[in-house]
Design a protein around this nucleic acid. Structure first.
Lengths: 216, 216
DNA sequence: TGTAATGTTTACCAATCGGTCAAATTATCC
DNA sequence: GGATAATTTGACCGATTGGTAAACATTACA
């Protein structure tokens, strides 16, 4: 009798790893569009190409699927900020942070939307992570930015709202993709819009951080 | 026999106006958090304090409720952009546009989230409005900004991405409110955060638009 | 005040929801 | 190859879903 669920076994089988990957991929498709409440296990099962009980063999509940997905996304989502280097040159650090975040919006839009959906619903599943690891990381990087300003390397600014601005502007191209495409029109909806956005955003933020000399 | 639904009558009764208002208010509460698919008529009925069939007397389907809500929100949501004045002073126009958008994020967060939810789901109910009225309005204002740049009143920049940036940064404080509060901590989660955001964003965008002189 | 239109509720429906169960199938390892 | 564990599925469950039917209550208006 195979009572133990996959999750409870000691070692993960080859099949387990493969199937869990397929399921999470399908779950990402569905959750990122409809949010937790609006998604159904049947939808995910159909996308994954397996039966519903089979999904539930690998993840005991809908919550468990969502949880696993969120955990994975949350980690990789913070990668760019983690890479933010206190010893680097301020301007190029900001620049590459923007570029990296924009690349993620381009290459992993579903992950961005999954996260956005969770935020819109009041973060019922991740509030602890926000207040813990996320806040800690942001606090740390905000301190770096503040130190740069104090040392006169960049203009004074509120580091928290700077970070919020970079988050929102870059993620906008993933989360509000439909709107961006609709407004830009079909002729500017190719991948080139990410190039344009990168150019604009780098200019915007870097200019804002330069210490202003006498104006023309 | 009262076959005709409220919506089909010639003139709207006093009761109709009141109840429809109550229902839409409740629907906004629910839809803005859970999105269309994730919301149920029962939830809305409970918030509205009336029975489910009573809701369905005023709005025949869940879609009709959502539709009515979206239409109303879409209109008021574009108010600030409509007010953007081609004959005004560029710097103060941008400034007051940011301020107005931020006020809306503060005073009408549910409306912002309703819209964001719709975008995340691929705008299945409003794609036409995006491609029509919205695009037209943005095109018009983008032309204004381009003209300002051409006349040397502001620095050259991509007007579309400028508008996207203002949208995303301001709406972020409504849509990602949980995250903002979590990162800022309880001591900075009072209404003052909107003041700080306004100060930061006005500086960011206005600086970016100033024609740059020789640097210090 | 009577009556027709409007508004409200109870009871209900078929479809779908998240999830279980036991039986059947497949992979693994000796 | 056979025993055993791991995987997959069809049938099913109670709860919830969006929505309806019809009886009942209230309002507006002559």
């Amino acid at each position: 009798m195979a009572i133990p669920r996959a999750a409870k076994t000691q070692r993960r089988t080859r099949i387990q790893e493969e199937k869990e990957e397929i399921i999470l991929e399908a779950a990402l498709d569905v959750f990122s569009v409809s949010g937790f409440r609006g998604s159904t296990i049947d939808q995910i099962a159909e996308v994954a190409g397996m039966s519903k009980p089979n999904l539930l063999y690998y993840f005991r509940t809908k919550e468990a699927m969502h949880r696993a997905l969120i955990d994975r996304v949350l980690f990789t989502w913070l990668e760019p900020l983690r890479a933010f280097d206190a010893n680097g040159d301020p301007e190029s650090e900001i620049r590459s942070y923007i570029r990296r975040k924009l690349e993620m919006a381009r290459d992993f839009p579903r992950e961005s939307r999954l996260f956005a959906n969770e935020m819109l619903q009041g973060a019922p599943h991740v509030e602890d992570e926000l207040r813990g690891p996320l806040k800690d990381l942001v606090d740390e990087k905000a301190e770096v930015i503040r130190a740069w300003a104090k040392a006169g390397k960049i203009a004074k600014c509120d580091p928290y709202h700077l970070i919020f601005s970079i988050w929102s502007t870059t993620q906008h191209y993933a989360d509000f993709d439909v709107q961006v495409r609709a407004v830009l029109g079909p002729e500017h909806s190719g991948e080139g819009r990410f190039e344009d956005a990168a150019r604009y955003l780098e200019q915007l933020f870097v200019d804002g951080l330069r210490i202003r000399g006498p104006r023309a």
